[in-house]
Design a protein around this nucleic acid. Structure first.
Ligand code: SF4
Length: 355
DNA sequence: AAGACGGGGCA
DNA sequence: TGCCCAGTCTT
């Protein structure tokens, strides 16, 4: 009759949680893969990627042996590509330094590439049942409401505070259940906009609900506006219907992915392209010295990143001039292109134009 | 502490 | 359009 918050929440989880592929296993490797994919990514999106990834790389050793390009290809479309590159690096570290098994000690886990506080806590608690908090956006929201905490969750200090709340409740329950139960509650009941407080199993423990301020929490300061950029994309094909593609640099945005060449254009160039008519053309040079002759803008659309807004003007173009040593691009057949990892906006272009 | 880093779903 | 989502790394 006097059950604690953690006991009630765990009991609720045991009989109400969704059946998800990564909950059918206790293999630390699979849990690691799933937790990495789930960072900033919805469950429904992750599921097919999870199966494809494990089919191709069933063990740490398989992943360690793979080429980075294979890993990126499986990851294609999932976003935050450093996750895939870090997964690959960490798999090699695990193979070399930890006899091919994920370390048990959270301090060792934290040293691996791609393991921050969340992933470390998730693997330590879910795979090894160790009492380590795993605080993500859901837990941040749920605990802010339960404890009626008005700290700004965009601040690093607040995460420490929430971790403290979680730790305090982790004494009398199984960490592997409690952490997942907090996230499950956040994902299915304690929703950001419409928390289902009337159906909530821990309503009587929730200080925000008792005070009628659940909808006011968590406190989150506003994100900055996106920077806007217009890019002219060169869609150049040769007489064999091959397309000119290039590989992006190994750091920064969409690192190591493939793309159609493009350049940042100002408002005047943008207007000039828009006004192109028959028998007219404009020449542009990319950073790697390739000169493209543009005759028509075929397609214009917008692609949103977290911090940038790309307006992409896709132009029918011809390669006028390229230096073999300097240029980073080359003509590829449709079959070759299909095997390369492309970023979403370029995939969209390729699929639009090939049809 | 702040900014970079994807993509898709929803109101 | 703006906000949200199972974060980590770099500067
Ligand atoms: S009562 Fe409402 S606000 Fe509190 S934990 Fe439950 S769903 Fe969230």
């Amino acid at each position: 009759m006097n059950e604690s918050f953690e006991q009630v929440l765990c009991r609720w989880y045991e009989s109400n949680h969704r059946k998800l592929p990564w909950r059918e296993t206790s293999d630390p490797y699979k849990i690691w893969i799933s937790e990495t994919m789930l960072q900033q990514t919805r469950v429904e999106t992750v599921i097919p990627y999870y199966f494809r990834f494990l089919e191709q790389f069933p063990t740490v050793q398989d992943l360690a042996k793979a080429d980075e390009q294979q890993v990126l290809k499986i990851w294609e479309g999932l976003g935050y590509y450093s996750r895939a590159r870090n997964l690959h690096v960490a798999a090699k570290e695990i193979t070399e330094k930890y006899c091919g098994k994920l370390p048990y000690d959270p301090k060792e886990l934290l040293k691996l590439k791609g393991f921050g506080p969340y992933t470390t806590g998730a693997v330590a608690s879910i795979a090894y049942n160790l009492p380590v908090p795993a605080v993500d956006g859901n837990v941040m929201r749920v605990m802010s409401r339960i404890e009626k905490c008005f700290s700004d969750i965009t601040r690093a200090k607040t995460k420490k505070e929430i971790e403290g709340f979680v730790r305090a409740h982790m004494k009398n329950c199984a960490p592997c259940i409690f952490n997942q139960a907090l996230m499950e509650l956040g994902a299915t009941v304690c929703l950001p906009k419409n928390p289902k407080c009337l159906d909530c199993p821990v309503q009587k423990f929730c200080q925000a609900y008792q005070d009628g301020c659940a909808l006011d929490l968590p406190i989150k300061s506003k994100a900055k506006a996106r920077k806007k950029e217009t890019h002219l994309v060169f869609y150049a094909r040769d007489h064999e219907k091959r397309t000119w593609v290039q590989k992006r640099p190994n750091t920064g945005l969409l690192a190591n992915l493939y793309e159609l060449p493009h350049i940042l254009v100002g408002s005047q160039e943008k207007e000039a392209c828009r006004r192109l008519k028959e028998d007219m053309f404009l020449d542009f040079q990319t950073e790697d010295g390739v000169v493209f002759r543009v005759s028509e803008v075929m397609l214009t659309f917008t692609h949103l990143f977290t911090h940038i807004e790309w307006e992409l003007m896709v132009a029918d173009a011809k390669v006028l001039h390229a230096l073999a040593g300097k240029s980073i691009g080359e003509f590829c057949t449709p079959a070759e292109i299909e095997k390369l990892p492309f970023a979403a906006p370029f995939l969209k272009i390729i699929n639009t134009v090939f049809v």
